[in-house]
């Protein structure tokens, strides 16, 4: 019995213009994610992981190749269609949490609900429920600067899951956390996956990656199969080489 396919990338390339040159960041990507999958992508810094995640999250479009999300070719989608798709079918979790500082935990979780024009009262009910589920029922009215890193990330996960997305995308969700709160977040991910949520996660941490069902390795813009994921992982996540 085959699970339903959620994301299919076929022969995807992604270039960025860099002055007169173009940089080929992603080359010949093939990826097939099905419902209930839990995929960890590892790889050295600057190899193109975040770029891939932006494509999967419909924040960016491919230079060439095909991308099918939930059975639909999204390469022809308009900006509004992509926004609606992100709202309803994709949840994002970031390394740096990305909570809005002037809003309480509850109000942060409410944001996607308000974008979906859900009535205020229902927003609050659903957000409270979501925060309870991540074990923060006693922190609802706290602002982000009153929360620990692990708590912040759990608020972010509650926000990502609030509209029951088809897929949860996490870019180094434990990257800014100590090992204890990192483990808590990973437990939460496992629980969500057991409940049926499809998860794609980027990580530098071999232990974290080992919690996933499948592993892939990104190197110089090339994604290799699960088998090659057994090669030793790049560990030093600190030496970021981001260009901004």
């Amino acid at each position: 019995m085959e699970a339903k396919q959620i994301l299919l990338m076929k022969d995807v390339y992604k270039d960025f213009p860099q002055g007169d040159l173009t940089v080929n960041v992603l080359k010949h990507i093939n990826l097939n994610v099905s419902e209930g999958d839990y995929v960890a992508i590892t790889g050295p810094s600057g190899s193109g992981k975040t770029t891939l995640m932006n494509l999967m999250g419909c924040l960016d479009t491919v230079t060439s190749g095909k991308m099918i999300f939930d059975g639909e070719d999204v390469s022809t989608y308009t900006d509004n269609q992509l926004s609606d798709l992100r709202l309803k079918k994709i949840g994002f979790v970031f390394q740096t949490f990305e909570l809005l500082g002037q809003k309480t935990a509850l109000k942060n979780v409410c944001m996607p609900l308000s974008f979906a024009d859900i009535p205020k009262k229902e927003q609050i009910e659903r957000a409270e429920e979501a925060l309870e589920k991540v074990g923060l029922s006693d922190r609802m009215d706290f602002r982000p600067n009153q929360l620990s890193g692990g708590q912040k990330q759990r608020v972010a996960i509650a926000r990502a899951m609030i509209l029951k997305p088809r897929i949860l995308l996490a870019d180094e969700p434990t990257g800014a956390l100590d090992s204890a709160s990192g483990a808590q977040v990973m437990d939460l991910f496992s629980k969500l996956n057991e409940e049926g949520t499809t998860i794609i996660m980027i990580t530098h941490d071999r232990d974290v990656a080992s919690r996933a069902k499948r592993r892939a390795l990104m190197k110089d813009g090339i994604l290799s199969s699960e088998d090659t994921a057994l090669v030793p992982l790049h560990r030093s996540g600190e030496g970021d080489e981001h260009e901004s």
Partner: peptide, 11 residues
Amino acid sequence: LRRSLGARKRR
């Protein structure tokens, strides 16, 4: 962030 969570340009 708002855009990635699904807010349209108009919003």
